[in-house]
């Protein structure tokens, strides 16, 4: 067990836990933020994506010890009021079907937009191919990212 401190959605936390615990389970089980999803557990699908100091990371394989001293943002912290351009674009384009993978998709897209204000289709393909959606919403995800980019 170890004492590990980090900030999540602007809130400082200091937790005593097994440092090998994957960040995903700390976020979901310990902190009760269930917007970040479990799906593959092997960094293969992207459903668990959160931001560590602004970078998109897979929380399902990240030991909590690796985020000590970092600022973590989850889908709940992306905006307080659905005001992030991607959230608005996602609603406008009716992207979500079952919705389970969408928090991860949005967090990956948000990190992309933060780096590249006007991503091309190729940028989107490259970055978003790391996130799987079984409902087949990819076409709308692409449209929503372009829409959000226009609004930024």
């Amino acid at each position: 067990m170890a004492q590990i401190a980090f900030t999540i959605n602007g809130q400082p936390k200091s937790l005593e836990l097994d440092p090998a615990t994957r960040l995903l389970w700390v976020i979901r089980d310990t902190l009760g933020l269930t917007g970040t999803k479990y799906s593959c557990g092997m960094s293969l699908c992207g459903s668990c994506t959160v931001h560590k100091d602004g970078e998109a990371i897979r929380s399902c394989t990240t030991p909590v010890s690796a985020v000590a001293g970092s600022e973590i943002t989850t889908i709940e912290g992306l905006s307080a009021d659905l005001s992030h351009p991607l959230q608005r674009a996602w609603i406008e384009e009716e992207v979500s079907q079952c919705g389970y993978c969408q928090p991860g998709q949005i967090m990956i897209a948000a990190a992309l937009l933060a780096k590249k204000r006007r991503p091309s289709d190729r940028d989107i393909d490259t970055t978003m191919s790391r996130a799987l959606c079984r409902c087949g919403t990819y076409q709308r995800i692409r449209r929503a990212i372009h829409r959000a980019a226009r609004e930024v």
């Binding site: 970040t36 709940e76 659905l82 009716e94």
Partner: peptide, 14 residues
């Protein structure tokens, strides 16, 4: 739609 993009949608796992 809104609950799907802010993490508030409650699935069985949640």
């Amino acid at each position: 739609a809104a609950s799907m993009v802010d993490g508030s949608a409650l699935f069985g796992t949640d």
